[in-house]
Amino acid sequence: MTEVKAELVGNLWKIVVEVGQAVEEDDTLMILESMKMEIPITTPISGTVKEILVKEGEVVQEGRTVAIVE
C-alpha cells in the first residue's frame, strides 16, 4: 500500500483515474494546477487505485496524501 502525496501546494484541477482502476508505475492519477503549470501527480508503483482522498477544485497542501495505490 502506497500513499501518493502532493509534491507542492496547488489547486486540484482534475482527477483522471477512478477507485478500483489498475494503474502502471508513473501513470498520472490527477493534475494539480500550481505555479502556472498543470502538474501531474503520478503513482510511484503499479497496482490498483484503492482510495482517492481529494476532490476536484480543492486546494491541496504540500505533502498531503491524495490517493492510495495498492
Partner: peptide, 10 residues
C-alpha cells in the same frame, strides 16, 4: 524540469 513541481524552484 517541468515534469516535477512544474519546474518551479524551491
Amino acid at each position: 524540469q517541468p515534469m516535477i513541481k512544474g519546474g518551479a524552484l524551491d
